[in-house]
Design a binder for these strands. Structure first.
Length: 212
DNA sequence: CTACCGATTGACT
DNA sequence: GTCAATCGGTAGA
């Protein structure tokens, strides 16, 4: 199954959201399981959707890069909520989208770093003010702008469906496509192998040479 | 209140 | 490849 196999008129809005159980497990496992799933966003402007191809896990124990590592604040409160909620965080005047995992009050989440555009590409181009397909959703803040994910969706329960949810992949991910590496951009706990991506996918962020 | 910094991006050499 | 813009969050005075 590749993205080229997709029907262009597929009804993404009808895809059911993943249930809370999907998100409640070990954060590293959830980060791996999210690869290949479909991130869907509906809005008055239209529907956008893409396949998740890169994630990063942020842990509760021995992970100084995790926003929850220095305790609960007003800004990171969503991380301490139930699994399956969105945690949307601003950095450098842009937004990043996370999925809360594990148990309530644990403070773990998975950052979605890249998706492959599957629906609403023209709407993504208008929001991003970019024409090149690769520049629409390659990177955590780019995909947020393409899907109009912002502070309003912090705390959103992704198991409820519209306006933002994640739907299951069509089938199991070929194990030979999975790659693991240190996380991108973090300045502490920079050596932990907590980034997961699909080998060779052009939408995976970071240096292209490191994505094979 | 001020000072510092970051899970980034885009422009530029 | 390098580097600066940019601003909310946080810590500290």
């Amino acid at each position: 199954m590749t993205d080229d196999d997709f029907e262009v008129d597929r009804d993404y809005a009808a895809l059911p959201p993943l249930s809370a159980e999907f998100y409640q497990g070990d954060t590293v496992e959830v980060a791996r399981r999210l690869l290949g799933t479909l991130l869907v966003r509906s809005s008055p402007d239209g529907l956008t959707a893409g396949r998740i191809v890169e994630t990063e896990a942020y842990l509760a124990v021995d992970d100084s890069a995790c926003h929850a590592a220095r305790g609960r604040t007003r800004s990171n409160a969503a991380m301490f909520g139930p699994a399956g909620r969105a945690y949307v965080y601003p950095i450098h005047s842009r937004w990043c989208f996370n999925v809360v995992t594990g148990l309530p009050d644990e403070g773990t989440a998975v950052l979605v770093r890249a998706i492959v555009p599957l629906a609403g590409e023209d709407l993504m181009r208008r929001r991003r003010k970019r024409e090149k397909r690769l520049e629409l959703t390659r990177g955590p803040a780019r995909l947020c702008e393409a899907l109009a994910i912002n502070r309003e969706l912090d705390h959103w329960d992704l198991t409820l469906g519209e306006p933002l949810w994640i739907a299951a992949a069509e089938g199991p991910l070929p194990a030979e496509q999975l790659r693991v590496s240190p996380r991108i951009g973090v300045t502490s706990a920079a050596d932990l192998p907590l980034r997961f991506f699909l080998a060779g996918n052009p939408f995976v962020s970071g240096k292209r040479s490191g994505n094979v």
